[in-house]
């Protein structure tokens, strides 16, 4: 059975169907890309899985347990981590404190009023930062980091709870090409090592084709295609609504294939 099962998921905003009955699965150890034009319902789908939005219908099951109706923090406790399109970290905390915060929460120590937070789970937090290559910056304010680094810190935060499923909303948006590759290679490694399932949205086609095991395409709230990179690239409907002629990205893809 797949780790995440989505069946007939829908969401309407004041009569407008943003997501109109979609089904898909994500298996453990799989990187699944969710792509589609702006306004296709990608973020809405994402936010329903995460609990930030309540689905109008359908079901989202993690390991057979229903997630619809649960709050984000409850879904997190069941092993779903997430990163945001515009990275969300705690700006007034240091890098390591950001990760410690997630660890404090996962150990149920949020309401401790008298102990000192600075030392709590610091070593574990440093270990996680080491995994994403941010250990050297541990004691810098999170607000002072470059954007790509903030995204890596966010990943470390999301991993603090040892999640089964990771949701990443445009993980490489606003990053330099080398950073993109580093981050996605890191994610890929985590998927393999931890048998993690990852669902991500992305506009950068080079990233999608290079790293996704499988992809699904959303347009106007419906799933119009699903399959491997090759199948999606040659899918006429996807070309029409999403890729266009491919002029603006074809070359890098071709080059990568040559390189690979």
């Amino acid at each position: 059975m797949s780790l995440l099962q989505i069946r007939g998921l829908q969401k309407s905003f004041g009569g407008v169907k943003a997501v109109d009955g979609i089904d898909f699965d994500v298996a453990a150890g799989e990187l699944l890309a969710l792509i589609g034009p702006n306004g296709a319902g990608k973020s809405t789908t994402f936010n329903m899985v995460n609990g930030q939005l309540r689905a109008s219908g359908g079901s989202v099951k993690l390991d057979g347990r229903e997630l619809v109706g649960l709050k984000p923090r409850e879904i997190w406790k069941m092993g779903v981590g997430r990163t945001f399109q515009i990275a969300e970290t705690f700006a007034s905390l240091t890098v390591v404190e950001n990760v410690q915060m997630a660890l404090i929460s996962s150990h149920g120590k949020l309401y401790s009023l008298w102990s000192r937070a600075a030392g709590a789970y610091r070593n574990e937090a440093l270990e996680l930062l080491d995994q994403v290559g941010m250990k050297a910056d541990a004691d810098r304010p999170c607000s002072a980091l470059a954007y790509g680094d903030v995204k890596r810190v966010e990943l470390a935060i999301a991993l603090a709870n040892d999640p089964k499923l990771l949701l990443m909303d445009e993980p490489t948006a606003g990053m330099a090409p080398k950073e993109r590759n580093d981050l996605m290679a890191l994610t890929k490694r985590l998927v393999v090592e931890r048998k993690l399932a990852v669902l991500f949205t992305e506009h950068s086609m080079d990233v999608v084709f290079a790293y996704a095991d499988r992809m699904i395409v959303l347009a106007r709230g419906r799933l119009i295609a699903a399959g491997s990179g090759e199948e999606i690239r040659n899918h006429p409907k996807v070309q029409e609504v999403y890729f266009g002629t491919g002029k603006t990205f074809e070359k890098p893809v071709a080059q990568e294939e040559v390189a690979a």
């Binding site: 709050k71 923090r73 705690f90 905390l93 404190e97 949020l110």
Partner: peptide
């Protein structure tokens, strides 16, 4: 300086992130 105090500032800095890590 306690975990509670940190959680308070975390909630102020980013409600989204705080909610996504169980606060």
């Amino acid at each position: 300086f306690s975990p509670f105090g940190y959680a308070m500032r975390a909630g102020r800095d980013s409600v989204l992130r705080a909610d996504a890590i169980g606060i």
